[in-house]
């Protein structure tokens, strides 16, 4: 019998700990499928963050390193500089990448490190129980912004794709979501392109996923998907952000 659907080689046969309605699982799968399709599993090293995806090393079937909070791009730099022929990807959340690791991601991008970053933005700290993230929307309630994010005091959410796209070391940046089959297809195309950019030695690549956190948002999975489409993508428009000016 011909098998038409199965687990990618780059994923392990381990049930994930992710909550119902969270799109981490879909994103893991997309990354694993791309690794399989490009035939690079045996030379891929992943780096997991501190956050919900901290245990990503249990789910991916390739060599993996767990980094300290926010430092994944620095760890990835160390690995890639030792093994220039390897394929190195960081899997980071919004607190990890845009808050505590803001310096590391900016500098890895501007150096044009040949790494790929999968950035999962769900506008909240999931693992620690729903605190405000650097990407929490204005007015959004979290356990540390119980009256809604007050931009006068807490400042504005960071648009990572736009911010990094101004840096000359960047080869490819896109913002995608996994809220519908159409969006998932686009997202996979972006992930593939990001890995190809790295493999071709073009420079730094990043795919920002707008993701869900139904538990901490206090929504059902479906409501959460809808919230990404109707609220988050207004502040964080989907699309290609590779607009780095060529500087001689």
């Amino acid at each position: 019998m011909k098998q038409v659907f199965g687990r990618p080689d780059a994923l392990t046969d381990v049930p994930t700990h992710y909550c119902p309605g969270c799109t981490h699982g879909i994103i893991h799968r997309l990354v694993a499928e791309v690794i399989d399709e490009l035939g690079v599993r045996e030379r891929t090293i992943g780096i997991s963050p501190v956050g919900c995806a901290v245990l990503a090393y249990d789910y991916f079937n390739c060599d993996f390193v767990e980094a300290s909070h926010g430092r994944a791009p620095a760890v990835a730099t160390g690995i890639k500089r030792v093994l220039p022929d390897s394929v190195v990807f960081c899997y980071q959340g919004d607190g990890d990448l845009a808050s505590i690791g803001a310096a590391e991601i900016v500098h890895a991008a501007t150096r044009g490190e040949k790494i790929t970053v999968i950035f999962v933005n769900n506008a909240i700290y999931g693992m620690t129980g729903g605190q405000m993230a650097p990407t929490t929307l204005p007015g959004q309630r979290t356990t540390t912004s119980p009256r809604g994010r007050d931009v006068e005091s807490a400042g504005y959410p960071i648009r990572v794709a736009e911010l990094l796209s101004s840096l000359s070391g960047v080869a490819y940046i896109a913002r995608v979501s996994a809220t519908s089959p159409a969006n998932v297809t686009k997202a996979k195309r972006a992930v593939r392109k990001a890995f190809e950019m790295q493999i071709d030695g073009k420079g730094f690549s990043l795919v920002e996923f707008l993701s869900t956190c139904p538990i901490n948002w206090g929504m059902s999975p479906l409501e959460a998907m809808k919230w990404v489409d109707e609220k988050m993508s207004l502040y964080y428009p989907l699309g290609d952000y590779t607009q780095v000016p060529e500087v001689g």
């Binding site: 620095a74 160390g78 690995i79 500089r81 030792v82």
Partner: peptide, 15 residues
């Protein structure tokens, strides 16, 4: 902070 984490990465890669 970054430099020492690059060391962490390079050490992971066996260097």
């Amino acid at each position: 902070v970054a430099g020492s984490n690059m060391v962490y990465g390079a050490a992971c890669a066996g260097a």
